[in-house]
Each structure stands twice: as structure tokens, then as C-alpha cells.
Simulated assay, not measured.
Amino acid sequence: MSAARMTVVDAMRRALVLAAERPVRGPNPRVGCVLLASGNEHDPRMVLAEGRNHGVGTPHAEAEALADAQARGVDVRGSTAVVTLEPCHHRGRTPPCSSALLDAGVSEVVYAVADPHAVAAGGGAWLADHGVRVTEGLLADEGTQVLGVWLDAVRAGRPFVTLKIATSLDGRVAAADGSSRWITGDQARMHAHEVRAQADAILVGTGTVRADDPSLTARGPEGRLADTQPLRVVVGHSPVPASARVRSADGGELVVVRSRDVREVLSVLQEREVRHVVVEGGPVVASAFLAAGAVDEVHAYVAPVLLGSGRSAVVDIGVRTIGEAVRLSTVGVRQLGEDMLVVARPVGPSREEEC
């Protein structure tokens, strides 16, 4: 590493790569840091150290980079810290990175995205007040993309909600006799498991538990359990049967929330530091989240099948006229075998205040 030289922009790109190497899941943001020797902004400089956050309870990216330099006997006084997210300015599970950088003698900090977290924010301003040169917004779009749902969740003050539905071409999630396995094919189901593996929690209602008896696990190729599992969340007032697979399946912890109130459910998950929840639980639960304005992204898996009758993907979501329709903007379309995946996000004002 001692022979590597980078401009500040190159260092930010490297920091983004470091950040993206960490799994998406968890309450902590994905952050990377590169320490550069002093020099001109546009000239290549020697890379002194680098670091990234490895997950909750581990050192932050800045702290790991400083520890890396110290372990190798590298003097970082007068250096530039290039970080994907504004250095935190609070003491949580780990000390504040702002004071760690100042104490180490770093003279300049460049970061991509300001920290929106009310408790952790302010590191940039504090460092500037203490004589450190601070630049915000370098490669901000790329930084925002890497931070992903964590950024949206912190800004909203609740978990990011992905609503997953799998339907026939005519919008049915089950046939007239209630059968629904399998509307979509193997590739679509495999993709859904990949999304599960990246989420903090999977949520269904008690009705889905009784009707489909899901295990709510994330599985990889050949049906093998993913290395880490999301929380399995069941909501509603009905009891979860003792024999339900969700109780006995190998995987993440089971959380039962005795409520149908979307705000209450999300509050419980927020307290458990859930940043991303995938809602998979049937038309009633899907409709409750849509009616509450609490869906941030929809994953609609559409199979080239016509059923003509049976359960619809959603029921009453409070729409009475076409003007009240929940409008979505398509952000991606992907073919998965014979099926199509449409990824869309709601547009227009949120109706969350009405629930």
C-alpha cells in the first residue's frame, strides 16, 4: 500500500469500493475511508492507510484506517481523510470519528454524503470549527447509491419498506381455490431470496402464516440457507400456530407483533435497528402498508399466466377515484426466465400522515 498514489477523487472511488464490500444488512451504514499524505488536491498523493466498517459494533471506517496506519508506524499528521460519509460526532457503540481524526492530526477531511442521522451528524462542522479543512459532496451521487436504503431509512426515521408481490398477468396472487404455489418460476423465486438475504427483516401477516406456512428464510442455490438470516416478522392479532414452520425453521429470530397498525409495527422494527424490511405478507398486509403511505419500493414479479379469478394483489387501499391512485415510477425492469420483475417507487405526496 505504501507505494500506491492517488488523487483525492481516486481515493474517494477507492473508499466507495471499500464501503461496497460490506454486506448491505445491518443498522450501520456502509462506509469506506482512505488516508492520503498531504499535497495538492489534483496531484496523486501517497496512500497512507485505508479502512471500512465491518458491521455493528466494529470500528468505523475512519477508526480502522487510523489503526491500520498506527500498526504500520505511519505518521498521519497533516494527512487528508477521504470518507464516503461525514464522520460521526457522537459516542455510541464506538467513539466519535470526528475527535479521532482531530486527535490524530488529520488536517483535511473530504466526504461524499452528509450524515442525516440527527444524533451522529455534525462532525464536518465540528472539525471545521477546530481548524480542519472540510469539503462535502465529492462523488455524492455515487456515495448515495452505496449507502442505499440505509440513507432513506435514516432520513425517514423508520425502516425502508420493500413490498414484494408475485402475480399473474391479470393481477392475481392465487387461483380461485386458494392455490398459489408457484405462480412465478425458479429464477424469480431465486431473485426474491437474494433480496431477502440483503434485508434486515421479512414481514408477513398471520393470515399468510396460516394459509401458506412459510419458513421466511433466505436461501441460496440448491435451497441452502444463506450464511446470515433476516428477522422473521409476523404481524396481526391471531396466534401463530405452534406447528408453524416459521417457529421451527433454521434462520433468523422470530418477532411477533400483535398489531395491525403499520406505524406501530414500523416503530417496533425501528427500535430493533431494522433498516430494511421486505413485506411479503398477502393482500391485506400489502394493502395496509400501501394505504399508510409506508411503501418505499415495490418489487412486482409478473408471470405470463392468466387466472381470471382468485385473490388480487391488493384489496382496499382507500382509492375511490383515479385521481387518488397510488402512482409509481418504474426504476427497473428485468426478465427472470419467463417472468418479469418490475421495480417501482411511489411518486407524489406521501399519504403517511393519513393513517
Rank of each mutant, 00 (worst) to 15 (best):
A125M: 09
G122M: 09
P96Q: 11
L48I: 00
V149M: 08
A69T: 08
A174I: 01
G148Y: 03
L127T: 13
T167G: 01
T162I: 13
Q145D: 11
G123V: 08
E41A: 07
S107G: 14
V146K: 00
G55E: 05
G39N: 07
P116D: 10
A61N: 11
C33I: 15
G92C: 05
G105W: 03
E136M: 06
D68T: 02
H60I: 05
D152W: 03
H42K: 14
G51S: 10
Y111N: 06
R91L: 12
A125K: 05
V134K: 04
A63G: 07
H130I: 09
A104N: 04
A112E: 11
A156V: 05
V109T: 14
V134Y: 00
L139I: 02
R77T: 07
C88P: 00
G143L: 07
L151V: 10
A114C: 09
L35W: 07
H130K: 12
R77H: 03
R91H: 15
R45F: 11
H117T: 13
V146C: 06
E62A: 12
L139W: 12
R172C: 01
G73M: 01
E142F: 05
Q70S: 11
E62H: 10
Y111K: 02
L163Q: 08
H89Q: 05
G57Y: 02
M46V: 15
A67E: 12
T94K: 15
A140C: 05
D43R: 13
A65S: 02
A128K: 11
A166L: 07
V110D: 06
T162S: 13
S107C: 08
R72A: 08
Q145G: 01
G157Q: 11
A49T: 06
I165C: 01
G123F: 06
C97G: 10
L169M: 14
L85E: 13
Q145F: 02
A125I: 11
E50M: 13
A37Y: 00
D103M: 07
G148L: 06
A175D: 06
S99Y: 12
R45G: 03
S38K: 10
G122P: 04
V83R: 07
D75K: 00
R172E: 03
A104L: 11
V154L: 05
P116W: 14
I165G: 01
R133A: 13
G124C: 14
L48R: 02
G148D: 15
C88K: 14
S107P: 06
P59L: 12
A166Q: 03
G131P: 03
H90P: 00
D103L: 05
H130T: 12
W150F: 07
E64T: 14
E86N: 09
G131T: 00
A71G: 11
Y111W: 14
V76E: 01
L36R: 04
L147D: 02
G171A: 12
H89G: 08
V149E: 15
G123A: 09
V154G: 01
A128R: 13
L101C: 07
V119F: 01
P116L: 10
A67W: 02
V74Q: 01
T167N: 00
M46E: 15
A65D: 01
V82N: 04
L151A: 03
L169V: 10
E41D: 15
P59M: 09
V134T: 09
G143P: 01
L102K: 14
